[in-house]
């Protein structure tokens, strides 16, 4: 019985990570993460943080500096590393030495991203590059260059089997789902189930729609705050949604239904609380890119047929 359960566990493990997959999904993950990382990278001034006066760095512990090799007073070096990371990300997008480029980009972002917040914390999460570091490094160890590359490998395909295209995508999806699961878990961990109470939701909505420093959108938050039933639904719904989102890892139907809802969820948070979550475009790693490509092909074929039928010769 024990052996049976161990073997069935191993079977489930292998089925989850090594079911035959598509090189397109892996290539799409590579491009999606490189584009979003590049967008965040060029929108920040990490080198400028290194160049801040020494007073700003006075509270940074030595262990944090050495952990990320982030030190004050090297803005020119950091600028060069920023440019190196940007170049590596462009190579990842185009598929030029994609695995090496993924590795370089991942390691450079591990060094650069903490600069954004290092003057007061060594945990720069929710700033857009956390999952990117993990995803780019995962991609570096996978055959992500077998498809959609400008310079395809002349030697051979990098994957030994179709399962080699699955585990990296699955792992990246796990990292993304963890955002929601741990976000829900931490709410219960620190505040208990009372977090979902209508009064707490109401106060969060009011706070973010009233604070002058963050008041860009204020109507939706105030509107929700005035309706306790909606506040209650949002509170309970948020916890259920965040803690239950892991089902998208196991069910295609759940993926089709819930992943678009995640985007709607973030849109709601943006307009009601002025909070931006830069990881939203990364949800594209849940798409089935084989289906997307065949849909595009069918559409372009039908447009061609339509043009042939309605072209000048037929009109005449």
């Amino acid at each position: 019985m024990k052996l049976l359960s161990a073997s069935s566990l191993a079977l489930s493990w292998n089925r989850f990570w090594f079911a035959p997959g598509s090189p397109r999904n892996l290539a799409a993950a590579r491009i999606v993460f490189a584009v979003t990382s590049l967008w965040v990278l060029v929108s920040r001034d990490f080198a400028g943080i290194s160049g801040l006066p020494a007073e700003f760095w006075s509270g940074v512990p030595a262990s944090a500096r050495w952990r990320f090799l982030d030190f004050a007073g090297h803005p020119f070096l950091e600028r060069a590393l920023e440019q190196g990371a940007a170049l590596a990300l462009v190579c990842v997008i185009l598929g030029v030495l994609p695995r090496l480029s993924c590795f370089l980009a991942g390691m450079l972002l591990y060094h650069l991203a903490p600069l954004e917040s290092i003057i007061w914390t060594n945990s720069p999460y929710a700033r857009g590059l956390t999952i990117s570091v993990l995803a780019l490094l995962t991609l570096a160890f996978s055959p992500c260059g077998d498809c959609w590359t400008l310079m395809p490998s002349k030697i051979r395909k990098q994957a030994d089997s179709a399962g080699d295209y699955t585990w990296p995508v699955q792992l990246i999806q796990v990292f993304i789902v963890q955002i929601y699961f741990f976000s829900g878990y931490s709410k219960v961990f620190y505040s208990g189930w009372r977090w979902a109470s209508p009064s707490n939701m109401r106060n969060w909505m009011l706070y973010f729609s009233q604070a002058d420093q963050t008041k860009v959108f204020h109507s939706l938050g105030a509107w929700i705050a005035a309706r306790p039933v909606i506040c209650g639904i949002i509170g309970v719904g948020t916890l259920v949604f965040e803690l239950g989102l892991f089902v998208v890892l196991f069910s295609k139907t759940a993926r089709r239904l819930l992943v678009p809802l995640v985007a709607v969820f973030h849109l709601g948070i943006l307009f009601s609380m002025n909070l931006v979550f830069l990881n939203v475009p990364q949800l594209l790693v849940f798409a089935d890119w084989d289906s997307v490509q065949s849909w595009i092909r069918t559409r372009s074929k039908s447009v061609e047929t339509h043009l042939e039928l309605t072209g000048p010769r037929n009109q005449a």
Binding site: P124, I179, K187
Partner: peptide
């Protein structure tokens, strides 16, 4: 980090 506890709100 980059293995985050995702403590948010």
């Amino acid at each position: 980090w980059p293995f985050s506890s995702w403590k948010m709100m």
